[in-house]
């Protein structure tokens, strides 16, 4: 029996702009990737969900604050509650934080400037479905492009996240003022992750780096395991 292609949904909101790159990258890494429109109240049969980057609903009020009320997001919350794999990239990360599926909040960059460049990252944890193909302490180069990527948690929350090992990626240099250079976190259960860098923009050396493929192929592999387990 050949291993099945996992089915991964890419959520689209009005204002999403990295959906095609995410779809392309996941397909290139051997997943069956399909779009899911924000008005869907039920998700199709999926092995994982990706919330891509962009400016959902114009990012009015606070980034991600409106998108969290989209019908499809309720379906994503139910999917996550059952242990489904969810990855939020950039605006997707902001939405998951606003929805309470991930800890903390993304604020305006400390510099007040939009940051758009390749950044060095350090992998803090490899026992997650999103980083299994990385080595602990490995340095990755993945681009960021955001104006509101400054992750914040108060002291009590931050200590709790450290104790639970929920910090998965850190910037290896200051990028946006994020607390303790946090670039990516998981929920306590470990099935929902958010990160500000864009792995879907770094899946081929022609793009400057293929390190993003390590994150996305970890997800594809974990989704495939779930698909196999469900057969």
């Amino acid at each position: 029996m050949t291993s099945p292609q996992p089915r991964i949904g890419v959520l689209r909101f009005p204002g999403t702009c990295d959906d095609r790159d995410a779809l392309w990258a996941l397909a290139a890494l051997d997943a069956e990737a399909i779009f899911v429109w924000h008005t869907e109240t039920r998700l199709p049969d999926l092995d994982a969900v990706v919330l891509p980057g962009g400016f959902s609903y114009g990012d009015y009020l606070r980034c991600g604050a409106i998108a969290r009320f989209a019908p499809a997001l309720e379906a994503v919350a139910a999917f996550a509650a059952e242990g489904g794999l969810v990855l939020g990239i950039c605006n997707g990360f902001q939405i998951l934080c606003e929805a309470g599926l991930l800890p903390g909040v993304l604020r305006r960059n400390e510099s007040l400037s939009f940051v758009c460049r390749d950044v060095p990252l350090v992998v803090e944890r490899t026992d997650t479905p999103f980083t299994s193909r990385c080595d602990e302490g490995e340095r990755l180069t993945i681009p960021v492009k955001h104006g509101e990527g400054c992750w914040f948690a108060d002291d009590a929350l931050y200590d709790e996240l450290e104790a639970n090992r929920q910090i998965v990626l850190r910037y290896a240099e200051p990028v946006n003022g994020s607390r303790n250079d946090v670039a990516g976190v998981v929920n306590e259960r470990g099935n929902v992750m958010g990160l500000m860098p864009h792995p879907e923009h770094a899946v081929d050396p022609l793009l400057g780096s293929a390190d993003g493929a390590l994150i996305l192929s970890s997800l594809v592999e974990a989704a495939r395991d779930r698909a196999l387990a469900a057969v």
Partner: peptide, 8 residues
């Protein structure tokens, strides 16, 4: 629920 984020 919406207008403020109590974290910040």
């Amino acid at each position: 629920q919406l207008l403020a984020n109590p974290l910040i």
